[in-house]
Amino acid sequence: MTVDLHHLAAAYALDALDADERADFEAHFPDCEICGTEVIEYRETAARLAVDPVEPPGHLRGRVLTEIARTRQLSPRAPVVDIEPRRRRVAPTGFLYGAVAAATLLIVGLIGFQLGSASPSDDQLVDLLATSDIVVEPLAGDGEAAVSVAWSAGSGEVAVVASGLDQLAGDRVYALWMLDAGGATRSVLFRPDDDGTVRELGELPGRPTGWGITVEPAGGSPQPTGEILFATAA
C-alpha cells in the first residue's frame, strides 16, 4: 500500500476513488475512528452540494412503491438462527454497516482477484451480482474467515464467497444451507482453494430467511449434521 489511507476520506466521500482504492479504504475506515468521523462529516458536506433538486416523473413513484412492496428488507440486528437438528445462537455483529461493506468488498475483491483468468463461474458471478434484486449477506462465525452469501430470487442463483477459510480433510466438505420456515435446505457444497478462498455458485432452493454453513461428509448430507460454523447474523 503506497497511498496513505487516512488521506483518502475526502475523495472517498465524493466517490472519487477508483474501485481498488475504494475497496482498500472501505476495509480500513470502519476500524479507524478518525477516518470514520471524517467520512461522516465529508458526506454531510457532499450532500449539501446537491442543490439541484429535480422532481422525478410522476410515474416513478408508483414503480418504486410497487418494487419495494416485493423487496425484502435487511434485518437490523442479528436474529436467532435455528438450524435443525442443532441450535446455536449467533452473536449479533457489532457494526453491521461495516459488515455489509466488508461482505461486498469481499465479493468484489474476489471477483477482481480472478478477473485475469476469467473462468466461466466468475462471469456468472458477475452476472448474478449485477441483478437488480441481489441481496448480499455477511455470515457471522468464529475465527478469521470472512464468508458472505449473495443471492437473487430473480435469477434463482446463490453465490457463496469466502476468504481465509480453513482447509478440510479430503473426506469432508463445506455445506451451505438455506434456512426458511420449513427448516434447512442444502444449497451448495464447496471446498476452499489452496489460499482459503471460495467462489461458488448454485441454485437458490427457495426463499431464504437465513443461511448457515456446516462441515459435512464428502458428498453432503440431506440435513445438517455438523456444527454451524457460519450463519446469518443480520
Binding site: 446537491a50 442543490v51 439541484d52 433538486p53 429535480v54 422532481e55 422525478p56 413513484r61
Partner: peptide
C-alpha cells in the same frame, strides 16, 4: 427525498 435523489 425524491427531488434530491433525482437531482443527484
Amino acid at each position: 427525498l425524491a427531488p434530491l435523489v433525482h437531482g443527484i
